[in-house]
Design a protein around this nucleic acid. Structure first.
Lengths: 205, 205
DNA sequence: GCATACGGGAACGAATGATTCCGTTCTACT
DNA sequence: AGTAGAACGGAATCATTCGTTCCCGTATGC
């Protein structure tokens, strides 16, 4: 299958991919940036989504589904309770779905389906949390809402390219996990520490 | 002293105070929001600062001086090494100077004085950090740049009013300190944990 | 009394960004 | 070969936001 229809099908994916990249990098990005990144015209976007908001909803929904998948996967595959919980946190940080969701909070009326998925995601997260506490590997004075806010904090880390950002988020996640795990212990932090130069480079764009 | 001159003097302070509040709540806020909050007209702002950028620079400089004061105070007043370091971090979180500085990074050309203060602040922070590591109370694999990024993460916490936000930041700071302190140990977290309702309330503004 | 510094806030103009529109290209089918 | 129409690209449009300027009333200090 080739030709116009093939290009259209390819563009479907190209646009979604570009939108994911652009909006996770900058949730307030203009829609033209998405078109540019995808290498298509603006009308290619508007053919598929009636508005920017609709595109954002789609992305949001996909993110939620990813969240659910991560929860289900760790509960299915993990051997020991701590690895399950830590794997969950690492998975969500990697999914990098938070920056979007947060920025979008309150900007549109959730769909029925969106709402159901959100409930489901929340239930699964609670379940992962509960299992870790009951297994005695997670300190009991942190709540699921604490964890959610922790994800937001990690999502706020943004330095250098996407690669470096991910590396640093995992470094701080490791730090947080040290504070979360029972019994208390410190484990080596992954990834090279941020350099002073990396920080100060933000001052001259 | 009263009358027009008094009002002017009062407005000086009123405007700075309002600017601090408005811009720490939303670093991208329009200048009219500052005038409203201060209860003055826009021209009262422009009489004192030639541009928005000038006002932002002033705020940024004040924040830097506050940072320096916090460092000097903890080094002067603290009894034991850990309290010095923890007091430093608590002080910076309370100063709440980070959200501004970060958002401003790269938006204007630093003054000479601004630059000097920044260097000084950095030196002091390094000194506080060094002393904590040398006293064996701070894990040595975190760097000063790690700490700076930690501040940014804490500054990203924003929920409910200013009061609640501060409370939550200190809660997460306590968590981070547990991961930072040697020997590893967990201490009770301060402040009520975030409620699920607090989080979900962001979805209907 | 009155010249004037001060502050209020409407008006202006630039910039940004979503959305629409139109001419073009290319496929599919006759 | 020829044509209808789906898909595109991207310029034009339209609304909005915000920094800055301007004009005017006021009351203060001489």
């Amino acid at each position: 299958m080739s030709g116009r229809k093939a290009q259209a099908a390819r563009n479907d994916e190209l646009i979604l991919q570009a939108a994911r990249e652009v909006f996770t990098a900058d949730p307030g990005a203009p829609i033209a940036a998405v078109a540019d990144r995808a290498g298509v015209g603006i009308s290619a976007l508007y053919r598929r989504y009636p508005s920017k908001e609709a595109l954002l909803q789609k992305l949001c929904g996909d993110g939620l589904k990813l969240y659910i998948e991560v929860c289900e996967r760790v509960m299915r595959e993990s051997r020991d309770p701590w690895e399950e919980f830590a794997g969950y946190m690492r998975g969500i940080v990697d999914a990098d779905t938070n920056s979007l969701t947060i920025k979008l909070a309150g900007t549109f009326q959730p769909t029925e389906e969106l709402f159901r998925d959100a409930v489901r995601a929340s239930e699964l997260a609670t379940e992962v949390h509960r299992r870790a506490v009951e297994a005695g590997v997670l300190r009991p004075d942190v709540t699921t809402a604490d964890i959610a806010l922790l994800f937001e904090q990690l999502a706020s880390v943004r330095l250098g390219g996407q690669e470096r950002t991910s590396q640093l988020r995992h470094r701080f996640l490791a730090l947080a996990l040290d504070a979360l795990r029972l019994p208390p212990a410190h484990r080596p932090l992954p990834g090279p520490a941020p350099e002073d130069g990396e920080l100060s480079s933000r001052w001259n764009p």
